[in-house]
């Protein structure tokens, strides 16, 4: 580690700026990782644990003892008796300052002890019910399905429509092509927040309000996607297309047998971005979708946290579900993503 730390700029000695730089990196890493890690760990805590203060770092649950003669497992406590000797016992009940416990070594014998002499025992454990409950008892399974549907369909449509348009705009010179391109580019900077109302009217006019297709259709014709693909397709030599024409290929065949396979890297970048965009979309679905059965995961999560503010164990588990796909994509494809962003300025 030290060797790694000191290997900056090929010099053997670290100077002050090196130390400051590394301090910045490590601090930054902590600042980014801690809130997410904390939410992740907390999402496995049982409800009782999550509301206790001060919090424990790792998810813990009350330890339980199965003792002969008791149908239910008993919560485990550490009992320190008068002699100072500590023993693990099961708590039968607690009334006021007295508690009734039973030693697993002699299950038949109930002891009455001071409530102050016993201490609750916990073990590290994951509360998977945090994850299964919202899916079963609340509508999160529906939200999840809606999100997957929107993400998958919108991404496929985005790839198909954008690549067709990019093909036309990069490989043909036809009247109007520049107009179309400039028109698209000029709206690249135009945010949704400026056209919220008329865009919603169009949705209502097309009878797509409160409909997942309303979310899908309005997002697939992204100028960003067309732009990204067009820039890439411009690098494919025109000779290839002419060779294909001489080879009796129809224009459509040129598109899908020559252009599409050769644009695979750009298509992959767009696909990754599209999945992330659609999975994370918030404001537009918020406007279009009104009934809970049509909510996407982001909307459902927002609505749920507004309604059940104390159910943090559920909120956090579903938050983890919402960030999981993006995280996995990032883990495996981060090089494409960071390079795609750096080269195109797309976000």
């Amino acid at each position: 580690m030290l060797g790694f730390l000191t290997r900056t700029r090929g010099k053997s000695r670290m100077d002050v700026t090196d130390i400051l730089a590394w301090a910045w990196l490590i601090l930054g890493t902590l600042v980014i990782a801690i809130p997410i890690g904390w939410a992740f760990l907390s999402s496995f805590k049982p409800e009782a644990e999550i509301n206790s203060f001060p919090p424990t770092l790792l998810p813990r649950a009350a330890e339980e003892l199965v003792i002969e003669g008791y149908d239910e497992p008993l919560p485990a406590y550490l009992w320190t008796d008068e002699t100072g000797e500590a023993r693990t016992v099961g708590l039968v009940r607690r009334i006021g300052l007295k508690a009734t416990v039973v030693d697993p070594a002699s299950p038949g014998e109930r002891l009455s002890v001071d409530a102050g002499a016993i201490e609750k025992q916990t073990v590290i454990s994951a509360e998977w019910a945090n994850y299964t409950d919202p899916l079963e008892r609340f509508a999160f399974l529906t939200y999840l399905k809606n999100s997957v549907f929107v993400t998958v369909v919108a991404t496929i449509l985005t790839l198909v429509l954008n690549s067709m348009a990019a093909f036309a705009l990069s490989k043909y010179r036809f009247r109007g092509s520049t107009t179309i391109f400039v028109l698209m580019l000029s709206t690249l900077m135009l945010p949704l927040s400026v056209i919220m109302v008329p865009a919603f009217m169009v949705i209502v006019g097309l009878n797509l309000a409160d409909n997942l297709w309303g979310v899908i259709f309005s997002t697939v014709a992204t100028p960003t996607g067309v732009f990204l693909l067009r820039q890439y397709m411009l690098t494919i030599p025109d000779d290839l297309i002419e060779a294909a024409r001489v080879d009796a290929a129809s224009e459509f065949r040129i598109y899908w047998r020559i252009i599409l396979p050769l644009s695979a890297p750009a298509l992959a970048v767009l696909a990754i971005f599209s999945v992330i965009w659609r999975w994370n979309d918030f404001l537009w679905p918020l406007i279009v979708l009104s009934s809970p059965e049509n909510y996407t995961l982001q909307l459902g999560l927002n609505a749920f946290q507004g309604q059940f503010t104390v159910q943090w164990h559920y909120i956090l588990s579903m938050t983890v579900v919402a960030l999981l796909p993006v995280t996995l994509i990032f883990l495996f494809l981060q090089r494409y993503i960071t390079e795609g962003v750096a080269s195109s300025g797309v976000k």
């Binding site: 000779d239 290839l240 002419e242 060779a243 001489v246 396979p261």
Partner: peptide, 14 residues
């Protein structure tokens, strides 16, 4: 019914 050999060859790289 022509065929053509391009200066760049224009072979389909994939």
């Amino acid at each position: 019914g022509i065929s053509m050999v391009f200066q760049s060859y224009a072979l389909y790289p994939h």
